[in-house]
């Protein structure tokens, strides 16, 4: 008896499938969106750096990038808007040996959640924070964010954004982050290595990932997904060790990428134990 093969039998397994809740696929991300690439880079880095997958968890906030926690097949927490870092802080302190990853978007981490970001960096909380920066609020249809370039068009700045964006690496550095890097989703190998490095070290690590949002940001700013990738290719300048104060995002003259900060400082928990005379 030959019988028909089921579709699942002939579909080759993706090498990251064991880290994905395949029963939740298809995902919600739009065609041309960069989050999936950043997410795969994160999964690859986890495979590379984390021996015991039971000891890795992901915490997200709200928004398109915040949905990552719903697709990763690890202990994963999709929390409230802006509050992934406080949740991750509690989880980390309850499980000090756990590798806790915060994967969220620019709106979530730097507008509504900005206060938590700077304080976790200041404490040197041992977290790996990955921010997919797509320059706008994608989930709600493309509103201006704390990362939207000046003059860029969004649904809440139809004549152009009157505000200036944050320089995220500078903010992270100034707040006390001990590892700061920026890559784009075009630089998947560097990005994966960077996340892998962050997962292997202790302390507050921050990685900004530039990613296109063709549907909600690109559409209003004459930038298709491939245009964004071309921009990442043509305008990127890899400058490891660059002064974070010099890496303002400048899509005209050059997007500075690289590992900007990598310094050792005791973590919150190490200092907590030391101060209290524990171990």
């Amino acid at each position: 008896m030959t019988g028909k093969k089921k579709q699942t039998d002939i579909t080759p397994a993706h090498p990251l499938d064991d880290l994905i809740r395949t029963d939740r696929i298809p995902h919600i991300w739009c065609p041309g969106c960069g989050i999936g690439t950043a997410f795969s880079a994160c999964l690859s880095a986890i495979k590379r750096s984390c021996e015991n997958l039971n000891n890795v968890s992901m915490v997200s906030g709200i928004g398109c990038s915040g949905r990552a926690a719903g697709y990763i097949k690890l202990d994963s927490f999709h929390t409230t808007h802006g509050r992934a870092i406080p949740f991750a802080t509690g989880l980390k302190l309850a499980k000090p040996d756990m590798n806790v990853i915060v994967f969220s978007g620019d709106g979530d981490l730097f507008a509504i959640g900005g206060n938590h970001f700077i304080h976790a960096a200041r404490r040197n909380m041992d977290l790996t924070v990955i921010c997919v920066n797509n320059l706008n609020y994608g989930m709600t249809g493309g509103q201006a964010a704390a990362t939207t370039p000046h003059k860029a068009k969004t649904t809440t700045s139809i004549s152009g954004n009157p505000e200036d964006p944050f320089n995220l690496p500078l903010l992270a550095y100034a707040a006390g982050a001990t590892y700061v890097a920026r890559w784009t989703i075009l630089h998947t190998r560097d990005l994966t290595e960077s996340i892998s490095e962050a997962l292997s070290r202790k302390g507050f690590s921050f990685i900004e990932v530039l990613a296109p949002c063709p549907i909600n940001y690109g559409r209003r700013n004459k930038e298709k997904s491939l245009d964004s990738l071309k921009l990442y290719q043509e305008k990127s300048i890899i400058k490891n060790g660059a002064d974070p104060a010099s890496v303002d995002l400048d899509f005209q003259n050059g997007i500075v990428l690289g590992t900007f900060v990598n310094r050792d400082k005791p973590t919150f928990y190490e200092k907590y134990k030391m101060i209290n005379g524990l171990d």
Binding site: V59, F77, T79, I85, P86, T89, G90, K95
Partner: peptide
């Protein structure tokens, strides 16, 4: 841990409980 505000305080409490 003394958090940065009450939103963070309860956020950390929920995270620790899942730990």
């Amino acid at each position: 841990i003394q958090m940065e505000d009450e939103i963070a305080a309860i956020g950390s409490v929920l995270g620790a409980s899942w730990g």
